[in-house]
Design a protein around this nucleic acid. Structure first.
Length: 544
DNA sequence: GTAGGGTTAG
């Protein structure tokens, strides 16, 4: 290592002197040892090492080397490091300006990108056709329509609008900002277009749901690459048309892992895990996204054991999980409700390189721990949150409620309201359930009324079921039955089931029979309601 | 002659 470094530096040092060196001052052959070291660099440590070496050798103004360092920072997502390197260059050339801009745009640092762009124009360097795609990307990611339009003006002032990359950047920007007519105007005015340009236009139509236009564009494309096909398949998946998605998938000349994952994800979201599994097994390649689609697919469809199984399979194949995988696994775990499994997942996540400070990861962790009975851990995570939202509050309230602390749960709901958060329909389901578990009948009734009166939320059949459960558990069977009969919608099995449970609890065989008849009509093959009905009768005989 | 850019899946 040191040997290569020494040889690398000598070629630069000697190039400035008149020694035996073969290369002129700014020529760096592709096979230069330092250059190949830079291209093989894969970690921040290694990068810092190379940077230090370059500085020690007095090469920190060497534009080509610095440019390579900056793109290395970009590929390692080390934007701050890139900034500090860049700021030490006294007269950056266009390559360096463009490089630092690219780093900012990839991180969606629009503000920094724009201020760098201004600084660049104040220096003597004028932007070129490499400058604008980055700027436009930052704008489209942030949905900054006005800033992007200003960038468009700068493009025209520079006269680089004929460049296919710039044009494609503009099409993509307007398309992502839902300004499809402007996107089309740019597209129609372009002299040269490639597959990417066409695909950006297709995606623009897709985002507006204009599937007819999107398909027309797709069919008119002179050349299609695998990304174009995947974009069109993804479009059908996005709008729930799995038939056409599959048609294209079967038609396309060659598929990559994204093609498979797009279809797998579509099947999983439609609840068809059998088809998802079939394609997953067929896929010649499986990246972490493919595994993640299967894991969260199983979790969302209630097949949590399969989700856990496939996670272990992934783990055994040395695929490193990302946060999507972990969130899927946590969601599966909360359905299983096993405290041991939850602890294992929690520890695994903490020891991995996954960033646990992301809100959706913490939310999943809280939910899992709460549902698996690890309330202390859940509370600890909850209190550590920089900002608590509705979702994290609901996870905690539900956790407290199912772990027998209904009163605390209701207290937390109050705290949530005091913090200024507006409860939604899910929040009310959760707090009504908590009231029901804690026997807080009056409190529950108040929330049920407040839902409509204070928040304008019409109670759903779930909310009614909660109220029936609440009244039923408290022995107020007649009121519960009256509430069911007053429902503006057709009562579902949940409400009748709750009432039947209450009939069993209080041995009310007369009402129980009426309720059971409704349940049998709704779910003639449901063994649970049959069992419940038998228990009503038996219980009554015991009492009698 | 050397260095930098755009589109797709979670």
């Amino acid at each position: 290592m040191t040997l290569i470094l020494r040889r690398a530096s000598s070629s630069f040092r000697s190039s400035s002197s008149s020694s035996s060196d073969n290369y002129p001052l700014h020529y760096q052959p592709p096979s230069s040892p330092l250059s190949s070291l830079l291209s093989s660099c894969k970690s921040l440590r290694h990068l810092q090492h190379l940077h230090a070496h370059i500085v020690r050798k007095g090469l920190h103004q060497h534009h080509i080397l610095i440019s390579q360092l900056l793109s290395l920072c970009n590929s390692l997502s080390e934007t701050r490091y890139a900034t500090s390197i860049f700021n030490h260059v006294s007269h950056p050339n266009i390559y360096l300006w463009n490089s630092i801009l690219k780093g900012y745009s990839e991180k969606s640092f629009l503000f920094d990108a724009i201020s760098v762009f201004k600084r660049m124009k104040q220096s003597d360097v004028s932007p070129d056709c490499f400058t604008f795609p980055s700027l436009l990307k930052a704008c489209s990611q942030e949905g900054a329509i006005r800033v992007g339009a200003a960038v468009h003006c700068a493009v025209l002032r520079c006269g680089v609008e004929v460049d296919v990359f710039v044009g494609t950047g503009l099409v993509d920007f307007y398309g992502k900002c839902r300004e499809i007519e402007d996107a089309r105007k740019v597209f129609d005015g372009m002299r040269e277009r490639n597959e990417v340009t066409w695909t950006a236009m297709v995606v623009g139509y897709v985002n507006l749901g204009e599937m007819g236009c999107a398909r027309e564009m797709f069919d008119r494309m002179p050349n299609k690459n695998v990304v174009s096909w995947n974009a069109m398949i993804g479009a059908y998946v996005k709008w729930g048309d799995l038939i056409n998605a599959r048609k294209l998938f079967d038609e396309m000349p060659e598929r990559n892992v994204v093609s498979f994952t797009t279809m797998i994800d579509g099947y999983a979201k439609a609840g068809d895990m059998a088809s998802a599994r079939f394609l997953f097994d067929q896929s010649p390649e499986r990246d972490v996204v493919a595994w993640s689609a299967m894991i969260s697919g199983y979790a969302q469809n209630g097949q949590s054991n399969e989700a856990v199984k496939i996670f272990h399979e992934m783990h055994s194949q040395n695929v490193r999980p990302d946060e999507f995988v972990m969130v899927g696994l946590m969601s599966a775990c909360s359905q299983v409700g096993s405290s041991e499994l939850a602890k294992w997942v929690d520890t695994f996540a903490s020891q991995s390189s996954i960033n646990l400070d992301q809100v959706h990861v913490i939310a999943a962790l809280i939910d899992m721990n709460a549902k698996c009975g690890n309330m202390e851990r859940a509370m600890h995570l909850f209190e550590k949150l920089p900002k608590r939202d509705l979702i994290s509050y609901c996870s905690m309230i539900q956790g407290l409620s199912i772990n027998g602390s209904g009163a605390k749960a209701v207290g937390l709901f109050k705290q949530m309201q005091e913090e200024g958060l507006t409860p939604d329909t899910v929040a009310f389901t959760v707090v009504l359930t908590a009231c029901s578990h804690a026997g807080l009948v009056e409190e529950g009734c108040r929330y049920f009324m407040s839902m409509k009166n204070d928040y304008g939320i019409n109670p759903s059949s779930d909310h009614y079921a909660c109220m029936v459960d609440l009244l039923g558990r408290a022995g107020r069977l007649k009121e519960a039955y009256g509430l069911i009969k007053s429902m503006p919608m057709e009562p579902q099995a949940g409400a009748w089931g709750a009432l039947l449970g209450a009939c069993r609890l209080y041995g009310n065989i007369g009402l129980g029979e009426i309720v059971a008849r409704h349940l049998f009509d709704l779910e003639p093959h449901n063994a649970a309601s049959m069992t419940l009905m038998c228990q009503v009768v038996l219980n009554n005989e015991c009492i009698g």
